[in-house]
Design a protein around this nucleic acid. Structure first.
Lengths: 342, 342
DNA sequence: AACTTCATGGCAATCGCTTGCCGTGATGTT
DNA sequence: AACATCACGGCAAGCGATTGCCATGAAGTT
């Protein structure tokens, strides 16, 4: 950033500091500091006096100065691959909520689905944040464990040995999805895959493959597709040319895009083809037809991630930090799945 | 926040400072500081040397220290009434994008549709941010102008004399919406109102009232309703008991909720009743039926707000700050509107 | 040749707060 | 009555940068 004049436009008079308070109260700044951030350390009468003066002056501590001297910043960064994706909105909502409750501030960063942006961001944030929540990280195991060694970290949907993780057990509900499809007479299923670098994508496919094998169903994979509604068109066409009767999509966004494309091509859902999504994002309930999907407590995952991070930051109050939290999922049956054709 | 040990869990060795760089380079810290943040101020050779060392050390400047001494923080706060609402997601996306491009960091805050939270946040952020973007503020004119006097501020969808504003011209497209309905034979329209404290809500209703009067249509208002899909049920029932043939909803969220309720009650859209939404949020295109709505360049509004704030922060580079930007809107006709019944 | 100008880099104060260390007087213990 | 303990506050040294001011020597001017 370039040079800017010190006094920027509108700022009025100088903001009060602990020094102003100290002067008025006739005490040292250290006493003010303690009264405000370590109350039991000073006499009740003194403290009350200081608090009163602080309130009168509308004193607000400088997070910068506080951070500089204490080493803590009160800021937690939340890194998501794509702020555009409603799935992450729910994560963000959860973290925002819980961070606020814990007295922290949320710094939101979009890593653009790019490993290097993620790495770079992580490095830059080392100084200015107390910890990081990494949703659907695209890092390798090695990069991830390096990062975890350097700063308090919690991952979401990306297991690793070196950092606490919140996992949304979408694979766990895959069995339900296959049973659901089986009961409708489907004997084969096509998986419309997400990004190759996505850990969740691999997990979901493996779960489908495995569960299908057990059930004696045939599982095919098509893709990869970008996890966007826009890519749904390609996925729908791919499913069609694969002769699919039932499709499980990497996520709801993709599934919703497929719905659109199928309608465009005159393919009826669920009469001609059944679709199952993943995540149960905003919109999955009111699209047309409403999407059968693997419902995840996304927002809760965000909240849990924060509490795990808090435990890591303050082991005394937080208790023994958990290394892993698994969020249960279940199949939410709506109208995009039905009997196999014929 | 309570006491925490200085060395928090994982942090490894001490991070390098300009002092480390200065020592290695054999120069004063001031030179390092200049080389890094005011390059033309030092000799090219010295600068290159310093830059090389900084890179080798993986030096990252402390935003805290920088902020403390320079008065700038590099942080812009974005305040939205409800992080849950997809409308604001688009705003956030726009600001995030543009802030990143300008080298700023975005601090996201949910003010919970509450005036006092908004005021309080504004006060607390005065020190720790360089400026604020206030989306759909619930403040009074007086409060707003006070705030604008104390810190650089840009509002979105909330005009005021004292701060630059980005307006989404939804009222401007109301005429189009009414003409559209008129052409379908509708002679009266019901407005399902949003929160009373919302400035946009008033604007939209006034625009409808006025345009309807000009057209010779009857306009009725019902509500207020919370701007959520959940409230759509109440709004739908309200519209029904008002005998509406055409409804304009305060926003798409409400409209989508209404769609749901109408289906539940066996009321067909658009055969029995037509619905027009506002904002064209994520989901408006794929709900059932797809929603006719007043389409707004929401994300762009976020971006423009940022650039107006940048101009305010740095009048030299930014040129004369604009006081007002109006984003054009238009009616997007989809399937939720049709001919009047009978 | 004398003088001005300018590019360059160092010195040191400062931003606002935290915290280790110490002094003082009050309270408790035996 | 002598001594250990403790609550409370002050002192002052940082935290890591930025920046006004000054010194120096080289280049340019007349």
């Amino acid at each position: 950033m370039d040079f800017m004049p010190q006094e920027i436009s509108s700022s009025g008079e100088r903001l009060p500091t602990i020094r102003d308070i100290a002067e008025i109260a006739g005490v040292a700044t250290s006493t003010v500091s303690r009264a405000l951030s370590n109350p039991q350390r000073v006499n009740a009468r003194t403290r009350e006096k200081i608090e009163r003066i602080a309130a009168e002056l509308h004193y607000v501590p400088s997070t910068q100065a506080r951070g500089l001297s204490s080493g803590r910043t009160g800021v937690i960064a939340v890194l998501v691959p794509d702020i555009t994706n409603p799935f992450y909105f729910d994560i963000i909502r959860g973290t925002q909520y819980q961070l606020k409750a814990s007295g922290y501030t949320q710094l939101l960063v979009d890593t653009e689905e790019a490993t290097d942006v993620e790495l770079d961001t992580l490095r830059k944030l080392r100084r200015s944040t107390d910890g990081v929540i990494l949703a659907a990280s695209r890092l390798t195991d090695q990069q991830l464990s390096d990062a975890a060694a350097r700063q308090p970290l919690v991952t979401i949907n990306r297991a690793t040995a070196d950092a606490p993780t919140v996992l949304i057990d979408t694979p766990g509900a895959v069995v339900q999805a296959l049973e659901h499809l089986w009961s409708f007479g489907h004997r084969s299923v096509v998986y419309a895959a997400g990004p190759t670098s996505s850990w969740s994508n691999h997990r979901r496919w493996k779960a489908i493959e495995e569960a299908a094998a057990k059930r004696g169903m045939k599982a095919t994979r098509i893709g990869p597709y970008a996890p966007t509604a826009f890519s749904g068109a390609a996925a729908a066409d791919g499913a069609l040319s694969a002769g699919a009767t039932a499709v499980i999509a990497f996520n709801d966004l993709l599934a919703i895009g497929m719905l659109d494309r199928f309608r465009e091509r005159g393919v009826r859902v669920p009469e001609d083809v059944s679709i199952v999504g993943c995540d149960d994002i905003f919109g999955a309930d009111f699209c047309n037809p409403p999407l059968t999907t693997i419902s995840s407590p996304i927002e809760q995952a965000g909240r849990v991630a924060v509490s795990m991070l808090m435990a890591q930051l303050d082991p005394i109050r937080g208790g023994t930090p958990r290394k892993l939290a698994v969020m249960p999922t279940h199949l939410k049956v709506r109208a995009s799945t039905g009997p196999v054709p014929h």
